[in-house]
Amino acid sequence: MEPSVIAEYTGDEEYMECVKDILDSSVFHSLDKYIQHGTTTCKDHSIQVSYLAYKLCKRFGGNWRSAARAGLLHDLFLYDWHTHARETGNHFHGFTHPRTAFQNAQAYFELSWEEGDIILRHMWPLTPIPPATRAGFAVTCADKVCSAVETTARLKSWVLLCFLARPARR
């Protein structure tokens, strides 16, 4: 994660106050072992989703505390989804990981009803039931934005590499 992003969220006292227990937990730090999109770890992805959703709720309304906390926990599935299907036979990670993340989050943290709802519904419209709250929509949107940026950053590098590797025209 870029130092400017780290400085922004760690310097936001209100944000840090409501997520400190999660950020300090070993289970959350274990997300560093798993790549989410491109070269971004699950931990960095979750922080970026959390902070963007928090800022969206602060600006447009919604429970910013629930958005911040659920944003950190929305992908707490604790496995490498790139190899999960091969290892388990479960080929539906996109559909099933919200429930796994919810169960893990419940096991390690005290969740409000809204935080649980956000985690369970963050993959909408891939999962059929939309988020029930503004904070839920903030996390869902932040997740889509962050995922797109992380994925296209890798794609941009690949396209640039292919372009630079092409033989020059004469």
Rank of each mutant, 00 (worst) to 15 (best):
V5H: 05
E8Y: 08
E8W: 12
T10D: 11
E13D: 10
E17D: 14
K20S: 13
K20Q: 11
L23V: 13
S26Y: 06
H29Y: 10
L31N: 01
D32P: 01
K33R: 03
T40D: 04
D44K: 02
H45T: 03
L52V: 12
A53M: 02
R59Y: 14
R59V: 15
G62M: 06
N63P: 03
R65P: 00
A68G: 07
L72A: 05
D75W: 05
D75A: 07
L76H: 01
L76R: 01
H82I: 13
H82Y: 12
N90L: 11
N90R: 09
H93G: 12
T96S: 08
H97R: 06
A101I: 10
A101Y: 01
A101M: 08
Q103T: 11
Q106D: 07
Q106I: 06
A107V: 06
W113S: 14
E115V: 00
I119P: 02
H122L: 13
H122I: 05
L126H: 06
V139C: 04
C141A: 15
D143H: 04
V145G: 06
S147D: 03
V159M: 15
V159G: 11
F163P: 01
A165G: 09
R166C: 08
P167E: 15
P167S: 13
A168R: 12
R169A: 14
